[in-house]
């Protein structure tokens, strides 16, 4: 548009590389044959990938994270869908205020949210339990689901609901038969985003769990803080590859 700017192109390329650099850098470290984090000295090994399958440590954490992420993403999506559809149908005067309220967890510093959720779970005795963790995750990820669903609803023709009602459908019937099918991609996006956000949640998780319930991020955190186990590199490589694959597949679809 503004002519060819070599400098701009070069800088953009450099910025892109900067973003990918740390992700590429961990790859060789995951193949080291040594017990500690190091570049493989001509000796390659998959022992750290095997270590991931230790049912007492990494595998257990992967299981916990999966369970928590599945539960909290489904709950968050359901709550967000109900809220979004409620707003869309009723257009209450307090709509802006309510949306602001449910988006609060994104705006509030994560560490402050963490203190508040710690307080809550301490009061109701759910600290360091799966239900407590799911509750905290729902609070933290629900804004993302709400944004995805409100976005999908904003593209929906209001008259669809009126047409359904008009043809004799009750409000619930029109929600189930007309609104939900038409925002299915938004629902899926909301669920997927919340799943990933919950799977990766670290700030609140570090406050409200960690002894009995150890999620994958918590275990990675402990390893980073204490002894830099190369298994972290192996886990990272798997997560990076999975993410890249999903993104490339989605790109090639469209």
């Amino acid at each position: 548009m503004f002519g060819k700017s070599r400098l701009g192109g070069f800088l953009a390329g450099a910025s892109g590389l900067f973003l990918l650099l740390p992700l590429v850098a961990v790859i060789p470290f995951s193949f080291t044959a040594k017990r500690f984090l190091s570049m493989p000295d001509g000796e390659y090994s998959l022992r750290h990938y095997v270590a991931i399958f230790d049912p007492d440590t990494w595998l257990a954490s992967i299981g916990t994270s999966t369970l928590v992420a599945l539960l909290s993403s489904v709950i968050a999506t359901a709550l967000a869908a109900a809220f979004g559809i409620g707003i869309w149908l009723r257009r209450p005067a307090s709509g802006r205020f309510l949306i602001g309220l449910v988006l609060l967890p994104i705006i509030v510093p994560p560490v402050t949210s963490a203190v508040a959720l710690y307080f809550l779970l301490a009061q109701i005795g759910l600290l360091d339990t799966v239900p407590g963790l799911v509750l905290s995750h729902v609070v933290m990820i629900v804004p993302f689901a709400v944004i995805a669903i409100l976005g999908a609803l904003s593209r929906l023709d209001r008259n669809l609901e009126l047409a359904a009602r008009n043809l004799g459908a009750s409000q619930m019937q029109s929600i189930i038969m007309v609104i939900l099918p038409n925002i299915r991609f938004g629902l899926f996006a909301a669920w997927f985003v919340s799943l990933v956000m919950s799977w990766e949640e670290s700030s609140v998780t570090l406050f409200v769990s960690g002894v009995n319930v150890i999620t994958l991020p918590k275990r990675i955190w402990d390893n980073l803080r204490l002894d830099l186990d190369p298994a972290v590199a192996a886990i990272s490589v798997i997560m990076i590859l999975a993410t890249t694959l999903v993104i490339l597949l989605r790109k090639s679809e469209t």
Binding site: N159, L160, L162, A163, N166, G168, A169, M177, N182
Partner: peptide
């Protein structure tokens, strides 16, 4: 409420249900 009235509407932008075929749209009511 609208569903209890013996009234139907043809909307300006038609408001056909995009996820249903013509047949299913007509059958809905």
């Amino acid at each position: 409420p609208p569903e209890a009235r013996p009234v139907n509407t043809v909307f300006q932008q038609y408001a056909l249900f995009p996820h249903m075929t013509v047949r299913r749209n007509i059958a809905f009511g």
